[in-house]
Amino acid sequence: MAQEPIIALECVSKFFGHGEKAVRAAHDISCALHPGRTVALVGESGSGKTTCARIVMREYQPDSGRLLFRGNDATDTGSVCPKEYRRAVQMIFQDPFASLNPAHTVDYILRRPLALGQPHVKGRAADETIADLLRRVELDPGTVARKHPHELSGGQRQRVNIARTLAVGAQVIVADEPTSMLDVSVRLGILNLLNEMKRDIGVALLYITHDLATARYVAEDILVMYAGQIVEWGAVDQVLTNPQHPYTRLLLSAVPNPEIRFDNPGARLDPREVETIRREARHLQNRVVEVGPNHFTRCPA
């Protein structure tokens, strides 16, 4: 991975509140997004995943650390033009029912970002582009373009959301739990689509989820987050097959697995043990240990 990352977080921290009561939402977060690769950010609710996403989307300014876009500082005081950044970095939200304007047609929903993101595409060419975008996300332009969001299923809406990010010409897509509100049978279609975009268009993807199995399906690299810290990171297969941090192990052991029934005593999680792992993982862990090539974990200094 000698290639320059398109987006990088360097030792980014974000606090909410002041003084004693300040909440450490993200602490010393570093990660890099490369074209054509996916980084999965996994963790439970409240672990700081969405805070990281919002920092990448420039919705929050980091309290310390740097957000780099092609090597340049992309925070408010930095040199990167906000418009250029917005064009390049787009987001797909969790709730496909709330993220499209119900008053507009799909055509309009795609035409606006196209006009803003790629103003040179006009008239007939714009029509063509919109049809192409819809075909790319496997929707039929002839029927879908005229529809309003309420006429589409959850999966179709999420496809429109993906097309919308492409309309602007996104190079980085932040997908915050894009499939958790969809039916199981359509989830895979969306994941396949994300994989295709990564492969064919070379977008960099930050995939946020609490589902380790889907993370394995779309990502090359994984970051496991707990209480605002990345406790373990590296290549997906290494982290998932050889987890080092107690929290990663806990997360893995709790993933539903039809092979192990609950009445199997070996499969039981001991609530006290779980509490201990949680309590200890909440402490600051400043020492980074290299487990292997592209596999790291943190432990208390």
């Binding site: 589902d211 997360l251 993933v255 999680l269 609530p271």
Partner: peptide
């Protein structure tokens, strides 16, 4: 999330 889910169902 999965850990809490597991604890409750167990």
């Amino acid at each position: 999330d999965v850990v809490v889910q597991r604890e409750i169902l167990q």
